[in-house]
Nucleic acid binder design. Structure first.
Length: 176
DNA sequence: CGGTTTTGACCAGCGC
DNA sequence: GCGCTGGTCAAAACCG
C-alpha cells in the first residue's frame, strides 16, 4: 500500500479560520480526540515534513444539485447551487488515494495555470452520486489536492486502515 | 463480456 | 455577443 502522508489542519493553521464554524469545530474535535492511533500518525507525518496543509470548504451553500442534462433542462430549471465541497491536500506519489470507496473516472481536464490535469471521479455505488476531483499542484508536484463533493449514502466499500477512520469521522461531522 | 478509462465534444457560467 | 474556463457526457478503447 502506498504510504500516504496525511495533512490535516493544525490549530495554528490560518486557513482554518476560513472554515465554517461547525466544520472548524469538527476538526478541532479531530485533533482533540487522541483516542485512536490515527492522530499519532498524522502528527508524526506532519512533523516529518513540516509542511502546512489544510482542509477547506469553499462551497457552503447546500443543495441537491442534480446534473441538468440538456434533455432534462426543460423539465425543471433549478437554480444551480453548489454542494458542499471539502478539499484537502495530501502528499503522495499516487494521484488517486485509496479511500475505500469505489470510484469511476468520468472526465479529465487541463486546468489553467497548472501543468497537471484534473481528474473527475464519481462514486459507483448505486444512488450515491458523490464526486471527487483529484489534482496535483504545479507548485509542489508531490502534493495532491482531493476535493470531495457530497456525502456517501452507504457504508465504505473496501475498508482501509487509516482512511476508514477518517471517513467515519467525516460522516460524524457532516455539517447538515 | 462487463466494468473502467480515455478523450474529444458539448454546455453553462462568467468576465470583458 | 464572444471567448475562456470548468464540469460533464458519451463513444470508443482498454482490461481483467
Amino acid at each position: 500500500m502506498e504510504n500516504y502522508q496525511m495533512f490535516f489542519p493544525i490549530s495554528s493553521s490560518p486557513s482554518v479560520a476560513n472554515m465554517a464554524p461547525n466544520s472548524c469545530q469538527a476538526f478541532n474535535s479531530f485533533h482533540g480526540d487522541s483516542s485512536n492511533g490515527l492522530l499519532l500518525d498524522w502528527k508524526s507525518s506532519s512533523s516529518r515534513n513540516a509542511e502546512n496543509c489544510f482542509i477547506q470548504k469553499p462551497e457552503v451553500e447546500e443543495t441537491d444539485n442534480q446534473m441538468m442534462k440538456p434533455s432534462s433542462v426543460g423539465k425543471q430549471k433549478e437554480k444551480k447551487i453548489r454542494k458542499q465541497r471539502y478539499a484537502f491536500e495530501t502528499r503522495s506519489q499516487v494521484d488517486v488515494l485509496d479511500d475505500g470507496y469505489h470510484w469511476r473516472k468520468y472526465g479529465q481536464k487541463a486546468v489553467k495555470d497548472n501543468k497537471f490535469p484534473r481528474s473527475y471521479y464519481r462514486c459507483t455505488h448505486q444512488g450515491c452520486n458523490v464526486k471527487k476531483q483529484v489534482q496535483r499542484l504545479t507548485k509542489d508536484e508531490s502534493v495532491v489536492v482531493t476535493t470531495y463533493e457530497g456525502m456517501h449514502t452507504h457504508p465504505i466499500h473496501k475498508p482501509t486502515d487509516n482512511f476508514e477512520h477518517i471517513l467515519n469521522q467525516m460522516h460524524i461531522y457532516k455539517p447538515f
